[in-house]
């Protein structure tokens, strides 16, 4: 067995100190060692996006990030965006606009969409399609996913205006 290395990752605001194998992947640290199972394993080759999380503010596919690369990083998963009792605007929007069917891709979709709207709070439909093209969904045909993201953007911008 290879030598383990100590790493420290902050996930959804909570810091964890772990010993990680050199080849260990972030997705398995999250899912199997921290019991954070919102991010899913879909393809393990960074194509499907079911494992998408935010790492230091960037969208990453946790199936192709080594745990060691996440040392010192701050990770946000879908669980960190909101809870069933207190949902993020995107989470509410995906529910209300039927932006999901089987739901397996949903945590990755929402986490990716959160970053997309942070970078571009008023995206066009084409920009949403381009920005979400790294996340696969086999059920919905994307219609309601795009609709959910655009509706959430509107809601978040309206909230922003009220706040200002």
């Amino acid at each position: 067995m290879s030598k383990k290395m100590p790493i420290s990752v902050t996930v959804n605001g909570q810091t964890h100190d772990l010993l990680a194998e050199p080849r260990e992947l972030l997705i398995y640290v999250l899912r199997e060692r921290l019991d954070i199972t919102g991010p899913h394993v879909g393809c393990e080759t960074s194509h499907c996006g079911a494992c998408t999380v935010l790492m230091d503010g960037k969208s990453v596919k946790a199936c192709t990030v080594f745990a060691a690369q996440a040392n010192g990083a701050s990770i946000t998963t879908v669980e960190g965006l909101g809870t069933p009792d207190s949902l993020h605007a995107l989470q509410r929007s995906f529910r209300e606009h039927h932006g999901l069917q089987c739901g397996y891709c949903t945590p990755g979709m929402i986490t990716r969409a959160a970053k997309l709207l942070e970078e571009n709070p008023t995206p066009t439909e084409a920009e949403v399609r381009f920005g979400m093209a790294g996340n696969l969904c086999r059920c919905t045909g994307y219609q309601n996913i795009v609709k959910s993201i655009l509706a959430a953007a509107d809601e978040m911008n309206a909230e922003q205006e009220v706040a200002e």
Binding site: P39, T77, V78, P84, L87, F94
Partner: peptide, 15 residues
Amino acid sequence: PHDSASLHVAGSARY
């Protein structure tokens, strides 16, 4: 909405 929608969007629906 789908009966599990609230769970799906929160990442708490279990497969």
